[in-house]
């Protein structure tokens, strides 16, 4: 029986479980990042009195190392706010916060990239500023930045390995468990790396395909 079979193939159930948790954490964090990023971006651009707050948050989320943020959410928030109350929640909150900072800036770039003429065309047919924003600016921006949003998901997937440190049973944690049983890291960690590569490759290929599709169909270049 080869080491690969003994250490990886026979333990595949555990690794898949870990991958499932990884995907779950990342998906929730991703959803949070999109909603949070959009909110931060809109507040920054259009709510004058709260603008400094939004800028401070965006910069804080972007400038703090993800590991520090994870520790901060996991150990400081429960003391201050009594939440999050599970490691799993702390994991996706920290990942989501950081990405929401990045996505806020991506969204802003996308909004600024909508040509002024497209808005003026809306005004010229009698649409209100709100209608122009909702029907023209936001959809066009979302299309433009969609490939960048997908790329941000790959960043989340890679950062998500850190949640194993706070004992969220993701792929990384399961892999380290296996390593610590037999102290034979070569096969297990190589296989783990391969799974991450495969996953990230799938996602970024989807992002590229999306960008190509946008260019062909809508004539939009990804921001």
């Amino acid at each position: 029986m080869s080491n690969w079979e003994r250490l990886v193939w026979n333990q595949r159930g555990l690794l898949w479980q870990g991958l499932a948790v990884t995907i779950e954490v990342c998906a929730i964090a991703f959803a949070m990042a999109i909603v949070g990023g959009l909110l931060l971006c809109l507040v920054r651009m259009h709510v004058r009195p709260l603008r400094p707050v939004a800028i401070a948050l965006i910069e804080f989320f972007r400038a703090t190392p993800i590991f520090v943020q994870l520790m901060w959410v996991n150990y400081v928030w429960p003391e201050l706010f009594g939440w999050p109350n599970t490691f799993f929640t702390a994991g996706w909150v920290a990942l989501g916060l950081q990405s929401s900072g990045y996505l806020a800036e991506t969204f802003r770039a996308g909004i600024e990239a909508v040509p002024r003429g497209h808005r003026e065309a809306g005004y010229s047919v009698g649409m209100s500023p709100f209608q122009v924003y909702r029907r023209i600016v936001l959809p066009e921006m979302l299309l433009t930045v969609a490939p960048s949003i997908v790329n941000q998901f790959t960043v989340i997937v890679k950062s998500s390995t850190l949640v194993s440190v706070i004992t969220v049973p993701d792929l990384m944690l399961q892999a380290m468990k296996l390593v610590n049983i037999w102290y034979e890291p070569i096969e297990v960690l190589t296989a783990t790396a391969a799974i991450y590569i495969g996953f990230v490759f799938l996602v970024s290929t989807a992002g590229k395909a999306l960008a190509d599709y946008q260019r062909r169909r809508f004539g939009l270049n990804a921001a």
Partner: peptide
């Protein structure tokens, strides 16, 4: 408009 300004989406 000179630049058409159709909505691409």
């Amino acid at each position: 408009f000179q630049q058409f300004n159709l909505w691409p989406h």
